[in-house]
């Protein structure tokens, strides 16, 4: 391809990216404007919290347990060389609360709930259900999109917290149960070193940000999908990929802001 053609292609791609970005933000503004109308219809949100949050519990619980167990094992192997295996609880808890809880839970959330949201909304669009609602004078943003967005936004921090809690238990099983770390030391050192503000609040803030971004991407991709089988499949893939990239990049930014200036 010649240089002019290449430049044209670059320009077109760039414009396309910015156009989508703009549409995504306008869409977000519409969703946020519709949120107050949900106050009168909490049932819509509860139903979605069930499908987005409750149904994600199994994968979150199982993954949290295994991640905690791996942390216990790896942490012990490293710490035991320095005779510091009593600090295992601190290592496990800090890793989970600060980083792995929010990040891994968000990645799992994108795979389990985000992809489902995109596929569901995309298929509703492809089968003209959203159009049909518009013609019945029911605003799909208010009726379909906003409850799903709010449900995802509320569920994600809770899922991350559950992930961290189960992970701490997993670390305990391996460290204390199998490898013989003192149970009292595991808990007391954790209590001593994990700070409510510095560690837990920051982790919660991360999970709130990730939940917002992950759900926003999922509902936008679904609503913006090309209404064909191929379009919906592409949109679902994009949801998972873009959420993963956004979460990891944002995690770095947030970590730098929270823990960087020490």
């Amino acid at each position: 391809m010649n240089v002019i053609g290449w430049l044209q292609q670059l320009g077109r791609t760039g414009l396309g990216v910015f156009e989508r970005l703009g549409r995504g933000h306008l869409f977000l503004a519409q969703i946020l404007a519709s949120l107050p109308s949900l106050l009168t219809r909490p049932r819509l949100v509860i139903a979605q919290v069930h499908s987005v949050g409750v149904l994600s519990l199994v994968i979150i619980l199982v993954s949290g347990l295994f991640v905690g167990m791996v942390l216990g094992l790896q942490g012990y192997n490293t710490l035991v060389d320095f005779g510091a295996e009593e600090s295992l609880g601190v290592v496990v808890a800090l890793s989970l609360v600060r980083e792995l809880g929010p990040v891994v839970a968000a990645l799992l959330f994108a795979g389990r709930a985000g992809s489902a949201l995109t596929a569901e909304i995309g298929l509703m669009k492809a089968t003209e259900q959203l159009s049909g609602m518009e013609m019945m004078a029911v605003d799909p943003i208010k009726r379909v999109i906003a409850p799903r967005f709010l449900a995802g936004f509320l569920s994600m921090p809770l899922l991350a917290a559950i992930f961290s809690a189960v992970g701490v238990m997993g670390g305990y099983f391996v460290g204390v149960g199998l490898l013989g770390v003192d149970s009292g030391a595991y808990w007391s050192q954790m209590q001593d070193k994990v700070d409510l503000h510095e560690d837990i609040y920051n982790g919660v803030i991360k999970s709130i940000v990730f939940g917002f971004v992950a759900t926003w991407i999922a509902v936008f991709e679904g609503h913006d999908a090309v209404p064909t089988a191929e379009g919906v499949s592409r949109a679902t893939t994009r949801t998972v990929v873009h959420t993963a990239l956004a979460v990891l990049a944002l995690d770095f930014v947030l970590t730098a802001l929270m823990f960087g200036e020490v």
Binding site: M124, T127, E128, Q129, S131, G132, M133, M135
Partner: peptide, 9 residues
């Protein structure tokens, strides 16, 4: 009335 019916599935 949409061609596909557009019923909520």
């Amino acid at each position: 009335l949409f061609q596909s019916g557009a019923l909520l599935t």
